[in-house]
Structures are given as C-alpha cells and as structure tokens.
C-alpha cells in the first residue's frame, strides 16, 4: 500500500490551440503539384531546345513571363491576393509556349498568354474555377487569329538553320499526301527528330516527364492511360480497315497527342475528379484526337479535343459519382 502522490506543480502553460481533427496533414501543396508539372515539362523543354535551338527557350520564356505578369495584373485589378506563387500561371505559360511553333512572332505568345489568363482563367474566378484549360484557350485563339503566321504552313522554313523545320510536320504530311507512307520513320517520331510544335515532337521526353508526374501523384494516371487506350483502339481499327491510313503507332507518337495526354489532359482543374471520370475523359480525348485528325480540315486535333472534353467535364463528374463502399447512403434518419 502506498500513499497517494502529493499534488505536483502545474506544468508550464503553453499557447494551446483548439481545432477539429485531423491534426496532421500530408506535405502536399498546390504549389508543389505545379512544381512537379514544371519539372515534368523539363525533358520536353530540353529536347525542344535541342531541336529548335534558342528559339524554343525564347518562346517558352515569352509565354511563361507574360502569363505570370497577366495573372498578377488581373489579380491586382480584382483586388485579390496574388496567386502567382502557386505556380499555375507558370504552368499555363510553359504549356502554351511549348505548343507554339518555333518561329511564332513574339506577339502571338503575348496575346495567347493574355487570352489564356484573362478569358481562360480569371474570368471564371481564378485557379480552380475555370472550365477550360487556359493554355488551350490561348493556343486556340492565336491559332485562329494568326492563322498565317502560326498555322501549319508556317512550320516549314526551307532556309532555316535547323534541319527538322525544312520538312512539313508529320501530320500535315499525312493530311496533304493523304497517306502514311511519306511520314518520317517511327524512331524519328519517337525521339522527336521531326517538325512540329516545340514540346510535342519528342514522344520519349513526354513519356519521361509524364511518368514523373504520375509517380509523384501530381497527375492522375488514369487520364493518360485512358487517352492512350482510346486512341490506340480506334486507330488500330482504322488501320485494319484502311491500311493506307496512319497506323496506330504513328497516331500515338506523331503530333501532339502524348504531350496533350500527359500535360494538358491531366490539368486537374479542367478534368474530372472521379476515377471513372478520368478514364472517360482520357478515352474521349484519344478518340476525339483521332476523329479530328482523320475527318477535319486540321491536321492535328489536340487543342480542340481537350477543349471539348473540358466542356464535358462537369457532366462527366456528375455521371460518375462512385457508389460508396457498402452501397448508396440511405435517406437521412428521422430523429
């Protein structure tokens, strides 16, 4: 038997906070995710610089710089705190820049950035509120307004210092020659030794950067997986029906498809949040890319395919509400 312990002195009184659980949080932040995207874009940027020289870096620089400046400006005008540090403007700028041809005039990048930030993003209420991928809004706008200086014909410059740009881009070749036979070989398409927009030509770099984002969980893996599945299946069918058309592999590694699948379709804000929705978004994107390439006047369909799927995203989210484990919730209990 022991005596009860004597009362002890009070512990020091620290500053205590009362807050609801959980009291721990992962280290993930929005800025961190955007940083992962920027890192994921590094390989394509490096390859773009390799093939297109300083032009590539200048284009990307113009777009990143103007997107960030416009975001700052618009936020100041709306009296909102600057969200520049979350990196989303830089990501939009980088993607816009990498989707430009090497010789686009400087004002195309600036106007594209203005539209991307203003109409693509801020008008909807800023990050998280926009429906359309800002970079694609800007890209589509400049494609239509400056069709001469950055349309598909503008990619070809016969007396340019870089060899790749003396040929038309692969998909334009396919469109004009109406056949797949004249295309560069698959290996050239895979490592990007062909003409095209800055970031799209090197499939290998897209895959490396894309895998990085997926492994970091900064991009949903289901979206690119669905994209590849969608395009592969439909183009394989087309290839079997008409052996003259582009083959499945040419579809997959040619043009901007992979760049879009990994870096644009995965934009969290404008793609679905549900797992099934991400599959549907990816498959829809892949199929649309095929349809536009095959049946429209444009050789490439990435930007339109993305914008169309963006428009469907709210619907997809609503269609794909998952069933809870254990079945749908019963009606709220009467008390």
């Amino acid at each position: 038997m022991s005596e009860p312990a004597p009362a002890q002195a009070d512990p020091p009184k620290p500053q205590l906070h009362v807050a609801p659980s959980p009291h721990l949080a992962s280290t993930a932040t929005t800025g961190g995710m955007m940083l992962d995207v920027l890192i994921g874009l590094l390989p394509v940027t490096v390859m773009a610089a390799y093939y297109f020289g300083l032009h590539a870096l200048i284009q990307v620089g113009i777009c990143v710089g103007s997107c960030m400046i416009f975001e700052l400006m618009f936020n100041a005008m709306r009296g909102k705190p600057a969200s520049i540090l979350d990196g989303s403007a830089a990501v939009a700028g980088a993607i816009l820049g990498l989707s430009m041809p090497w010789n686009a005039p400087w004002y195309a990048g600036v106007v594209g950035s203005l539209v991307a930030m203003g109409i693509g993003k801020i008008i909807f209420g800023g990050l998280g509120q926009n429906i359309f991928n800002p970079a694609m809004v800007g890209r589509t706008f400049v494609m239509i307004s400056f069709s001469v200086s950055i349309g598909s014909a503008a990619y070809v410059v016969h007396d340019a210092p870089m060899e790749v740009v003396t040929q038309a881009s692969p998909l334009s070749v396919a469109k004009e020659a109406a056949g797949a036979a004249d295309l560069p070989g698959l290996w050239a398409l895979f490592i990007g030794n062909v003409n095209g927009s800055l970031g799209e030509t090197c499939s290998l770099a897209c895959i490396i950067g894309g895998l990085w984002m997926v492994l970091r969980r900064s991009a949903a893996w289901r979206t690119p997986a669905g994209s590849v599945l969608g395009l592969a299946v439909i183009s394989l069918i087309a290839q079997l029906i008409d052996p003259q058309s582009l083959t499945m592999l040419q579809h997959l590694v040619g043009g901007a498809f992979l760049f879009g699948a990994f870096f644009i379709a995965t934009d969290p804000v404008t793609s679905p949040v549900t797992p099934r929705g991400q599959w549907i978004f990816g498959i829809g994107y892949g199929v649309l890319v095929f349809l536009i390439r095959q049946y429209s006047a444009y050789p490439e369909g990435v930007a339109f395919a993305i914008l169309l799927m963006n428009a469907l995203t709210p619907l997809i989210n609503r269609w794909t509400i998952p069933t809870p484990v254990g079945g749908p919730a019963p009606a709220l209990v009467k008390k």
């Binding site: 993930a28 929005t30 995710m33 969200s83 979350d86 989303s88 800023g126 990050l127 998280g128 509120q129 969980r217 949903a220 969290p268 804000v269 404008t270 793609s271 679905p272 949040v273 549900t274 797992p275 991400q278 998952p322």
Partner: peptide, 11 residues
C-alpha cells in the same frame, strides 16, 4: 487555397 479538383481526396 482554392480546390484544384485534383481528385486526391477521392483517391
């Protein structure tokens, strides 16, 4: 900050 609809919470 604003929800970026990344779907991590769903995952």
């Amino acid at each position: 900050t604003a929800c970026v609809r990344c779907g991590r919470c769903v995952d």
